Amino acid sequence: MSKEKTVEKQNKNFLSGLFRQQIFIPIAALIILAVFNLIADPSFFKITLGYNSAGDPVLSGYLMTILDYGSELAILAIGMTLVTAASGGQDISVGAAIAIAGSVILRVLCGTNSRPDTLQAPIIVAFLIACVVAMLFGAFNGVLVAYFKIQPMVATLILYTAGRSIAAWINNNELPIVSDPTFSYFGGFIPGIPIPTPFFIAAVCVLVIFLVLKFTTLGLYTQSVGINENSSKLNGLNPTFIKFLTFVILGLCVAVAALIKVSRLSSINYSVIAKDIEMDAILAVALGGNSLSGGKFNMAASILGAYVIQFLTTTLYKFDVQSDALPAYKAVVVILLVVLSTPKVREWLSAVGKKLKQSKTVKEVG
């Protein structure tokens, strides 16, 4: 075999292997969005160094917005990926759960006075209490799904419907405001560091989950339950507990996202906070090439998918798409991803690829 044919074969094998990689989907979507913005308006990629109201240096630009708001979505994508893989369904209550956890944080910090001059408790204490509350609500969803065998979307519909009312009730329908400037650091900038704090929080969460997946059997057990629950039970696993655990982990992710959300404004709007964020989290999982019916997952692809979703959202906003119309655009993306991920479509694409390869071989021989 000549050297040219050997190189050509290696290139074909490389491309073929690349297309089979699960992370190829979000990378391809990222490249398409980047090229589109580069052609439409190269200034999209401009980053400028300025100063905020406190006189601290901050980086601004569309890319920083993606990094900022995509980070909280990446945190949610971690928990949503595990829930999807284990249960074969999605939690649609994360937005309402964020409202509850955020309301708890503000309640602890403000106490009985909705406009306190000083914090009534340390921020870490408020955050830990919010973690416990969010994990309890996650456990509630987990019990309905794992023990009572209710479909995840139906089970989480309860909290989706009642969650924001619960959040308002926690603070007696008042809108508490935290005046302490240190609280705003979690959703803004740490003085002297021009990169948004949510990015660092997300980086810590990503590091933790990758260490957990690497040094524990959580990932293996989650995939086993999602692929075949009965077989995993015969192999000594407890599918019920594993499903329950994934919802609790998602609850913890919700608490972290809630801290970022309420820190941005040092207050809360119960009906607007994290509105429709559950759709973005689910779309991030789907864009990562993960099957929405459960089973094998790729956490890195889901996290990258979260930033791609924010890239898409920021692009749509840049071109003056109304916020009310955003879900429609994202719904189209969801439909395309779900259709492309179905076995029937994948078999058809594989068959088309084989036919093209055979016809090319015939022409080369002829």
Results as ranks from 00 to 15, higher is better:
residue 277 I to K: 15
residue 305 G to E: 06
residue 357 K to H: 13
residue 11 N to F: 01
residue 210 F to A: 05
residue 77 A to P: 12
residue 316 L to I: 07
residue 164 R to G: 00
residue 59 L to I: 12
residue 86 A to T: 07
residue 19 F to M: 12
residue 166 I to V: 04
residue 286 A to T: 07
residue 229 E to H: 04
residue 233 K to W: 15
residue 48 T to W: 05
residue 108 V to P: 08
residue 62 Y to N: 08
residue 99 A to C: 01
residue 44 F to H: 14
residue 306 A to Y: 09
residue 182 T to H: 12
residue 14 F to N: 13
residue 38 L to Y: 15
residue 14 F to L: 12
residue 49 L to Y: 08
residue 45 F to R: 10
residue 362 V to C: 02
residue 124 I to F: 15
residue 28 A to N: 08
residue 258 A to F: 00
residue 112 T to H: 14
residue 272 V to S: 14
residue 195 I to Y: 12
residue 243 K to T: 06
residue 255 A to H: 06
residue 276 D to V: 00
residue 172 N to C: 10
residue 183 F to P: 14
residue 155 A to S: 13
residue 266 S to V: 00
residue 44 F to I: 11
residue 97 A to N: 10
residue 294 G to C: 03
residue 344 K to A: 12
residue 58 V to D: 05
residue 296 K to T: 10
residue 4 E to I: 13
residue 187 G to W: 13
residue 87 S to T: 14
residue 317 Y to F: 09
residue 355 K to C: 11
residue 65 T to H: 12
residue 118 T to H: 15
residue 274 A to I: 02
residue 341 S to N: 12
residue 135 M to D: 04
residue 57 P to R: 00
residue 317 Y to W: 07
residue 79 G to T: 02
residue 100 I to G: 00
residue 33 L to W: 06
residue 19 F to V: 15
residue 322 Q to L: 08
residue 66 I to D: 04
residue 311 F to H: 09
residue 84 T to W: 14
residue 24 F to Q: 01
residue 300 A to L: 04
residue 238 N to I: 02
residue 272 V to Y: 15
residue 89 G to Q: 01
residue 337 L to V: 07
residue 331 A to V: 03
residue 115 R to Q: 13
residue 366 G to E: 05
residue 78 I to Q: 02
residue 287 L to W: 15
residue 233 K to P: 12
residue 356 L to Q: 13
residue 69 Y to R: 15
residue 333 V to E: 15
residue 230 N to W: 12
residue 178 V to A: 08
residue 263 S to P: 11
residue 165 S to C: 01
residue 162 A to M: 01
residue 32 I to H: 08
residue 252 L to M: 08
